[in-house]
Design a binder for these strands. Structure first.
Lengths: 216, 216
DNA sequence: ACAGATATTAGAATCTGTTCTAGTTTGCCA
DNA sequence: TGGCAAACTAGAACAGATTCTAATATCTGT
């Protein structure tokens, strides 16, 4: 069985680094431009379907149809459904990051700023519960690394420790921010299962953040 | 599509509470006894298959065959593959709990005892990596509540806060033990992805446990 | 021991992710 | 411009989970 790889959504012969999520967005040849368009249409179609009926509604045949490509082409861009899901999530995280940039968390404490970020992300996901459900679950399931956890951990480090570059953080700092991110993901899952309200999540995240990040 | 429900593995007309995992193990009628046997055989067959090739190898047809029941019967006992996985996990947690009872963690600090428990569980899971992978992922994926998180949280509370009954714990205590459990699950996932060694997990769990449980 | 209810069975059928095939189109370039 | 390589397409084929069916087998109560 095919499992998600680092070459996600990288059409063959695309000279792209492993940390780049989109296939050469600033590509210059006609081919790479049209490829980028096609990829975008696919992801949009997938997101639109998922935001309705969740992963179930996001069927590969349907996505291909909506995006106006053949099934085989869809599979060329995204070797598995999971790869497609990962791409959709990537877009969501982009949104969160730019939102943070536009309006940085204002709390005076590190742990408060982390809570700000996580609850803002929570609200964002709550707006599209079906999508959120599909995405969170799929990501956790993913066989291999997804940029997800690390990106969130980095975001938390930056907002809570005064712009600290994750690459420069101590092992302990990474562990603490990563832990908070883990807790948030699990709380989100509980919410999707109907076992947490927004307020409960906030309370629990605050409790954990206080202990984990207060002296970051 | 059928999703896991509270009636998991409860053959019709079985007067069983929602917190009970096995169908009336001490049942008295010939029927409930034979049902129990059948269920047991199914779970054993499933576990055996999963401990080899993971979820992939645990195909419903194969499980049915090994357990000597028809596919339809398997589906009567476990309405979905996930339900079957949940049952297998239940057995694993039983093992952990009895192991804790036999040899309680001896560390002098609450956080140390919690680490003991989690690392013991980690070692147990590492012995059957394929099985562990299947189980952890599937549990996280489960649509609805599984006893998993709560059982682990309860276990942590009991060992770290001097036998504290989870039903009597404060909201904060529950949040803290639950958070540690969440972190552990995510670390386990990272290990399954090959991104953590046992030692790294131990270190990170210690760091988190210190902050979260030191004054439980 | 009989009747109705429930459980079981073998196997076909359905659904969706994934792979494969054969033929067509497109971009590049000598 | 001719032609190769890569991308694309329609659609068939395959795999494994889940559902459905019709026929039996097993219980249970009386």
């Amino acid at each position: 069985m095919r499992t998600p790889q680092a070459d996600v959504a990288t059409p063959p012969a695309d000279p792209e680094g492993p940390t780049e999520h989109h296939p050469a967005p600033g590509g210059n040849s006609a081919r790479s431009r049209s490829q980028h368009q096609r990829r975008k249409r696919i992801v949009q179609a997938a997101a639109a379907l998922a935001s309705r009926g969740g992963v179930e509604a996001m069927q590969m045949r349907t996505v291909a149809e909506r995006a106006g490509v053949a099934l085989g082409t869809l599979y060329r861009y995204f070797p598995s459904k999971m790869d497609l899901v990962v791409a959709v999530v990537g877009e969501e995280i982009d949104l969160l990051e730019s939102s943070i940039q536009r309006r940085p968390p204002s709390s005076p404490t590190p742990s408060g700023r982390a809570v700000d970020v996580l609850m803002r992300a929570t609200r964002g996901l709550m707006r599209e519960p079906e999508l959120a459900d599909a995405l969170i679950r799929s990501l956790i399931l993913a066989e291999v690394e997804t940029p997800f956890g690390d990106r969130m951990t980095g975001l938390l480090l930056r907002v809570s420790a005064g712009g600290l570059d994750p690459a420069r953080a101590s092992e302990e700092q990474l562990a603490l921010a990563g832990s908070l991110s883990s807790i948030w993901v699990q709380e989100l899952l509980e919410m999707l299962r109907g076992r947490r309200t927004y307020d409960q999540i906030q309370r629990r995240i605050e409790i954990a953040s206080d202990r984990l990040l207060s002296d970051l």
